[in-house]
Design a protein around this nucleic acid. Sequence first.
DNA 1: CAAAAATGACTGACCAGTCAGTCATAAATG
DNA 2: CATTTATGACTGACTGGTCAGTCATTTTTG
Lengths: 199, 199
Amino acid sequence: MQAAEQLFRTCRVHEVTLDEIARQADVGKGTIYLYFTDKEDLIFQAAVAGFDEMCLLLRQDVGPDVAFQKALLRTCETISAFFQARRPLFRIILSEGERDMEHGGIGLRQRWRERRKTMTEAMAAIIAQGMKSGEIRADAPAVILAEYLLGMLRTRSWELEDRPDAQRSIAAVVDLFLNGAGLSARSSAQTTSDQHEHR
Amino acid sequence: MQAAEQLFRTCRVHEVTLDEIARQADVGKGTIYLYFTDKEDLIFQAAVAGFDEMCLLLRQDVGPDVAFQKALLRTCETISAFFQARRPLFRIILSEGERDMEHGGIGLRQRWRERRKTMTEAMAAIIAQGMKSGEIRADAPAVILAEYLLGMLRTRSWELEDRPDAQRSIAAVVDLFLNGAGLSARSSAQTTSDQHEHR
DNA sequence: CAAAAATGACTGACCAGTCAGTCATAAATG
DNA sequence: CATTTATGACTGACTGGTCAGTCATTTTTG
C-alpha cells in the first residue's frame, strides 16, 4: 500500500501497473494477490487506510470540552496537514470516488462514502458547537458550512500550493471563513488571537 | 468532441474507448484521427473548447461599469451554471490537468494553465474592483480570494449536489463569502438585496 | 474520373490476473 | 541431534482480453 501511494505521487492511478507496484514494494506480483483481491481493492484499501489515519487524529485532537475557536483551528490544521502530506491519496479518494467503483456491485463506494462522511461530520460537530455558543450563524446547516470550509482547505492545499503567501497560516483561512471577505459594517476585527501572519 | 463529453458523463475518462466515441459520434474511428492527433488531444481540445465557451460568457456578462456586488453575483452564477451543466468537462480539467499531460513534452499542460488562469483572473478582477470600492478587505491578494470563492462554488456544485437546500441560491454562497460564517460584531446584515432564499 | 474524405478491419503493445513451481522454515521421525 | 517430510508464503513467466493507432479500401465530392 505504501509502495502504491508512493507511485501515485508521480503517476495517475490507472497509469501505475501492478508490476511497478510489486517492484517498488520489492515483492512478487503474485504476492499482491494473496492480500488484495484486485487492483481496485489495493487502491481502495490504501486510500481508506490513509483516511482512517486522519480520522483517528481528528478524534484525538479535539475533546468535546475544547473551546470552539481553538477546536476549529486545530481541526483545520490537522486536515490541512493531511491534505498536503498525502495529496495523491486524497486525489484518488475525491476523483476516483466520484463515479461508482463498479463491478463488485455496491460495497466499495458505500464504504468510501462512510469515511468521507466521518471527516465532514467531525468538522460539522465543531461548527455546531460554535452555533450553540453563538459564534456561528445558525441560518445554514452545520454540515453545509463544514463542506464549504473543507473546500477552502482543499483549495489552500491544492490550487494555491504554489502561492506560499496563501499558505502562511491556516488561521488566515479560518479568519476568512468566519469573517468573510467583505468589510460591511465590520472593522475587520480579528476573532482569533493568533492571526498575526496575514498581511 | 460533443460525443466524447457525452460519454464522460457516465464513465471515467480512460474507460471511454475511441471506438465508443466514434460510434456515439456516428463516425468512423479513422475519421477521428483526421482531426485529432491523439486520444489525449481529443480530450484536451474538448475540455479547452468547453472552457473557452465559459470564458466568453464571463467576458460578455460583466462590463467594467457594472456595480461590484452585481458583477460578483453574476459571475458566480455563470461559473456555477457551467460547473453543474458540464461537470464531466471540469472534472477532466481539474483532475486530469493535475499531473502533467506528459509525452508531448510541455505544450498541453501549459495551454491548459492559461485557460484556468483566465477564469481565476476574471473573478480576481471583480474582487479587485470590490477592494477599490472598499467593499472587500484588501489584506489578501485578490487572486487568492478569487481562488477560495471558486473553491466554494465548486463545493456547492459537486460536494453538495445532493443537498438541494444548499443549492437554492448562489446569493447564499456569495453571502457566506462576503460575510463569513461567524457572528462577531455583525448583526448578520444582508449586503445584497436578493438574499431572500436562504432560511 | 481524379482528388479528397471517410471508413473499419487489423495489429501490436500492454497489462490485470493466474498458476505451476521454488525454497526457507517448521514439524515429524528415528 | 541429524535427517526427512510437510507447509505455505512467495514468485514471475504466461495468457487472454483490450484498445490506441494504422492503412488499404470504399465513398463522396467537384
